[in-house]
């Protein structure tokens, strides 16, 4: 029961808070209520990571997955918008669990922004990638079984990430949820969204079988 309560708080309560804030508190400070809500939603994951008696393997693996997705942002820099971050976060969630997925997503955003520039958007990026990894972890067994579902999830993750960034732009500009500006932002971001979707699908199709093999190999070699 306790376990599910946490999921409910994270997946329902916080978005509800953001929407309620948008309806009842239409002033500029609202953008920062949402910013704080987003930051707070990351806290329980880090707390439980801290409290749990994690094996050293999990800690190092988390660092490796985060570093891989951040390094991917550099490695594929010559190809604009073709980035493996989302795919890596989804894979982390699928194979190592929901919480691990969230942490990989949030830390990838936080750490890669040391190189690409921190800003007021960092918490939103952390939250978006974190949630993508978290849900991938919850859906892990169907995602591993069905390739079509995986492709659909990759596409949805691209749309979700792009929409979250648009929501942030609108909140930052107006201080409340200005529908007109939101649609304006969505339309101007459309080509980028399409590129996100395509790159997510390509990376997932290529990387998932690779990871399956690699994890299998690790299991036989080191007996994890």
């Amino acid at each position: 029961m306790k376990k599910y309560l946490k999921y409910v708080v994270i997946l329902l309560l916080i978005p509800l808070l953001i929407i309620a804030g948008a309806c009842f508190y239409p002033e500029r400070s609202y953008a920062f209520v949402s910013l704080i809500a987003v930051l707070l939603s990351c806290v329980p994951f880090f707390l439980s990571f801290e409290k749990k008696n994690n094996s050293t393997r999990k800690i190092v693996l988390l660092a490796v997955m985060t570093a891989l997705s951040a390094a991917g942002r550099f490695i594929f820099a010559p190809v604009p918008f073709f980035k493996p971050v989302t795919a890596m976060v989804v894979i982390a969630g699928m194979y190592f669990g929901a919480e691990f997925g969230f942490l990989t997503g949030a830390l990838s955003a936080f750490i890669s922004n040391f190189y690409f520039g921190q800003g007021a958007w960092t918490p939103f990026q952390m939250f978006s990638w974190g949630i993508i990894g978290f849900i991938a972890g919850l859906l892990s067994s169907p995602l591993i079984k069905s390739k079509i579902l995986l492709i659909v999830y990759g596409a949805l993750a691209g749309v979700f990430y792009s929409l979250m960034m648009d929501v942030w732009t609108v909140l930052w500009m107006d201080g409340y949820f200005n529908i007109e500006r939101f649609f304006g932002a969505v339309i101007t971001a459309l080509p980028v969204t399409v590129k996100y979707i395509v790159s997510n699908i390509i990376f997932l199709i290529i990387l998932v079988p690779l990871f399956e093999k690699k994890i299998e190999r690790l299991k036989t070699k080191y007996g994890i």
Partner: peptide
């Protein structure tokens, strides 16, 4: 506040240039 997270962050920051070099 969170020594484990700090450890993960510092390890990640070391891994990134390593990985790029290997790549």
């Amino acid at each position: 506040i969170s020594p484990k997270t700090a450890l993960v962050i510092s390890m990640t920051l070391r891994f990134i240039p390593n990985f790029i070099k290997t790549f």
